[in-house]
């Protein structure tokens, strides 16, 4: 299998090189089994096309809507850098789109992995974190973090309530003591709590 992969690499260095952690592939050796690479090739290739299109659209939006509205006209010195960078990204994404079309996949192995879309639990963690950052303004650090930690543990399927309570109390307790008592740097109390306290 290793040989076929290597041939694919010669045809298109772009599609092959990257697997998502910034590590270069390590063909056929520990710790990655061969199958990992087949998936990577297919996924990266499929993403590349969409990525190229999406980024092109994004760049056009930046160029024609965001920059005129939020920076200034193209001739101003302040707009020069954003305009040049956006045009550069636009060119790159067009190249990426074309490359992904040219790449004829030699290996067609059905990917059984569920890498296509983020899992529901992943999406829920994202949603929890967004909600957390928003609620911090209102309910303060300690209360919000305690609730969020409980919810996160629940999402992560840790069921032992005694353990959860201990971990939460200890973590937040250490943070509270070190910020408020040792560093004299107040943690946010939150608008709602502030009103309640008075």
């Amino acid at each position: 299998m290793g040989r076929i992969v290597k041939r694919a690499r010669r045809k298109s260095p772009i599609a092959f090189h990257y697997c998502h952690n910034g590590e270069l592939p390590y063909i056929g050796q520990f710790p990655f089994p061969d199958i990992f690479y087949r998936d990577t090739i297919m996924i990266q290739n499929r993403y590349d096309f969409k990525l190229g299109i999406c980024f092109s659209l994004f760049c056009l939006m930046v160029l024609f809507f965001l920059i005129p509205d939020h920076v200034g006209s193209f001739t101003e010195p302040a707009a020069l850098m954003p305009v040049l960078t956006t045009i550069f990204i636009l060119l790159l994404s067009i190249i990426l789109t074309i490359q992904s079309l040219n790449f004829k996949m030699k290996i067609r192995i059905k990917s059984e992995d569920s890498h296509k879309t983020p899992t529901p639990s992943l999406l829920s963690v994202m949603a929890i974190m967004i909600a957390y950052s928003w609620f911090l303004d209102y309910t303060g650090f300690l209360l919000t973090s305690a609730i969020v930690m409980f919810v996160l543990f629940w999402v992560f399927k840790v069921k032992d309530l005694k353990q959860i309570s201990i971990i939460t109390t200890v973590t937040l307790g250490i943070l509270y003591v070190s910020f408020e008592k040792f560093l004299y740097a107040p943690l946010p109390v939150g608008i709602l709590i502030e009103n309640l306290l008075d």
């Binding site: 300690l142 305690a146 409980f150 309570s165």
Partner: peptide, 21 residues
């Protein structure tokens, strides 16, 4: 219910630290 009560416990413990004179 247990989740709620243990959560309450944690919150109360922490809230005690921020009493105001």
């Amino acid at each position: 219910k247990r989740i709620f009560f243990s959560m309450l416990g944690v919150v109360l413990t922490l809230a005690l630290c921020t009493s105001v004179m």
